[in-house]
Amino acid sequence: MNTNNDIVLKIENLSLKFHTPGGIIPAVEDFSLSLRRGKIHALVGESGSGKSVTVKSVLRLNPETNTEYTSGRIEYIPSEGEPIEILSANESTLRSVRGSKISMIFQEPGRYLNPVMRVRQLLTETMMTHLKVTKQEALEKAKDLIRLVELNDVDRVLASYPHELSGGMKQRVMIAIALSCSPDIILADEPTTALDVTVQAKILALLKKIARELNIAVLLITHDLAVVYESADEVSVMYAGKLMESSTSGSLFKAPQHPYTRVLLGAVPDISRRGQPLLSIKGNIPDSADRPTGCIFSPRCPEARDFCSLSVPAFESLGNNAHGVACLRTRELFRA
């Protein structure tokens, strides 16, 4: 079913550090993930766990001045032509991928759209940069895109400045821009966090439709497990820059294996368990300054043993290849 031909992006053992006046921040460590065409892959984790830094690495958008990619590779595999390794690509290759093969949408659409440019200009400039089209052709395509993201009143939207649109409309415009050059991959960094639930539901439905109908791989960053449950095909759980668990959505929600995933799930309020205390994790995500030794989750883990602070758990597959966990006690704690 998951043939390797479907894979369009491979992040392999990525590690990166930020150099700051306060010291070195190891924001991502030994992180791997693959995206498949037509599938939504969710990346979940608490805030500060390194989700945004990871997606930005895919387009090398972290600030060049203080980011050091210490190891790993990020490979984009187009349907035709040679694979491109992003971390070693030159500027012009990188630019030809950005916004055209791999595009991105952000959490607060209002702040990510240039306030003094009309939607028309924001949409056409990407096409005119990457595709060999005239202004007229770009404008025609822009109209189709606005319809594709289910906005009515095409001409009014195109002539609007961002602040004249609602939050949901702005996010649709952002999606339209992301789609404008028929990308293989869309990176969506918390695209619905700033929106109302009713709007969120519609935007998620739109993303799902796009993935299926246009055969685009979507990397969906979120901290909301219920959003993952309702929209993702595959899930990776990140904690303090590391991959904790990765699986198909069905398998993860049916049988979560990593202690961290289990507490995260137990912390989500479920009205059928009204009156019972929620499962909670003691403490906070570790400070980059004093990271725990051994398993990074050990100080907060309800299942931790003495040996957990001694050695670093490797990320290992559970029987079938689709489900992997990084925990020293995987076998003992296994639940079918």
Partner: peptide, 22 residues
């Protein structure tokens, strides 16, 4: 330093356009 500049970089625009237009 604003977010829309990051978005413009993510669109693959050349630096000159990002700086002098956006």
């Amino acid at each position: 330093g604003k977010p829309y500049i990051e978005a413009a970089r993510a669109k693959g625009l050349v630096d000159r356009r990002i700086q002098y237009v956006h």
